[in-house]
């Protein structure tokens, strides 16, 4: 499990989740994003193209980060969800809370 962050030329911080986003690593992702928010980043994209599944605590971290980023005038978007992850977002209706693109490339083009 790892989080790889890179700054896109358009000013979007792209974070790739390599592995699952679950109870054991959710705080690491949260801290990574909060540190970047503190440092001045406002546009975030989390790419799940290399993620198998997310549990409810992982979903919870995405929800709380989204609110914190919005409160600071920023935006958190998601991309790269496989069919299982799409099902997860649909079941929880979190697909209504996030802007979700099929790929990071599409998300960046629309940001």
């Amino acid at each position: 499990m790892a989080f790889n962050a890179r700054k896109h030329p358009g000013g979007v911080l792209v974070i790739e989740v390599d592995g699952q986003l679950i109870v054991s690593n959710r705080q690491e992702l949260k801290q990574r994003v909060l540190d970047a928010l503190e440092a001045g980043d406002r546009k975030f994209l989390i790419d799940f193209a290399r993620t198998g599944y997310i549990d409810s605590s992982g979903l919870g971290v995405l929800v709380s980060l989204s609110k914190k980023i919005r409160d600071e005038g920023g935006d958190l978007r998601l991309a790269g969800l496989n069919e299982d992850l799409k099902t997860l977002f649909e079941l929880t209706k979190l697909d209504t809370l996030f802007a979700i693109s099929d790929t990071a490339t599409e998300a960046l083009a629309a940001y």
């Binding site: 549990d55 409810s56 929800v63 609110k67 997860l88 929880t92």
Partner: peptide, 21 residues
Amino acid sequence: DPTLPANIPRPCGRGLFLIRR
């Protein structure tokens, strides 16, 4: 129910709901 409009923005309360689904 975490899918009620008022509960969707809450960060917790989805665990058992997901298991049941």
